[in-house]
């Protein structure tokens, strides 16, 4: 079944996510205004700068419709900055930075350090070994009991899910390995009603 996946395209690595989605045979639509949200089966929030995206979510009028759509069950996958936007609480963010509060995790922005500390490493995930790229990555500092940990690195959660919301602190779109996108579309998008 072909799914229509929206890619939040305000800023960041949205084109790489769109490539992963179309390679899997699904359609990708760039989302920049509220009109772009209609008829989507799922939504991906890419990496980039979370403070930039936060401001553009407000100025474009997307913040409230996206928050409501996720609350209504829209399957959503946030990577890196996208995960920060979905979090319940942001540590070390800007005080005016907004988040959707769609998954009960607390994240620390840039917790792994500056760019010279960025790294790639193998991680354990629910779909098997996966190569994770961590760019000035946020750290998941805590998760509530409602959150499933689906992937870990060094014993810490790096891939988490709560119902219709999936989030990773690394970048699956930069490796050319679309298995996590496949998992999102097959397991999160199709089960969003439950």
């Amino acid at each position: 079944m072909n799914s229509r996946i929206g890619i939040l395209a305000l800023q960041g690595a949205f084109a790489s996510h769109a490539n992963c989605v179309t390679e899997l045979g699904h359609s990708a639509r760039e989302v920049r205004t509220p009109a772009d949200l209609s008829g989507l089966d799922g939504l991906i929030m890419p990496g980039g700068e979370s403070s930039t995206m936060s401001q553009l979510l407000e100025s474009s009028g997307l913040f409230e419709p996206i928050r409501d759509a996720i609350a209504d069950g829209l399957a959503t996958f946030g990577t890196c900055a996208g995960m920060i936007l979905l979090a319940h609480e942001i540590v070390d963010g800007r005080s005016d930075q907004c988040c959707f509060d769609s998954i009960e995790i607390t994240v620390r922005r840039n917790a792994f350090g500056r760019q010279i500390d960025s790294f790639e490493a193998d991680i354990d995930t629910v779909i098997g070994d996966f190569h994770g790229i961590f760019i000035r990555a946020p750290r998941i500092e805590s998760v509530s009991e409602k959150v499933e940990v689906l992937g870990t690195y060094g014993g810490e959660p790096v891939l988490v899910r709560q119902g219709n919301v999936l989030a990773s602190s690394f970048h699956p779109e930069l490796t050319g390995d679309a298995r996590l996108h496949e998992y999102f579309i097959n397991s999160v998008v199709t089960t969003k009603e439950t």
């Binding site: 395209a9 305000l10 800023q11 960041g12 690595a13 949205f14 084109a15 790489s16 990496g47 980039g48 700068e49 930039t52 890196c80 900055a81 760019q115 010279i116 500390d117 960025s118 790294f119 790639e120 490493a121 193998d122 991680i123 354990d124 070994d129 790229i133 961590f134 760019i135 000035r136 690195y153 060094g154 970048h171 930069l174 490796t175």
Partner: peptide, 25 residues
């Protein structure tokens, strides 16, 4: 799993990755 979890820094993928994150900005 610990053995293969040695992180690599400064690879081309990691370096180009930050440029990817700045797109549209």
């Amino acid at each position: 799993k610990d053995e293969k979890s040695q992180p690599e820094q400064g690879t081309m993928r990691v370096k180009r990755g930050l440029a990817e994150m700045m797109k549209g900005g």
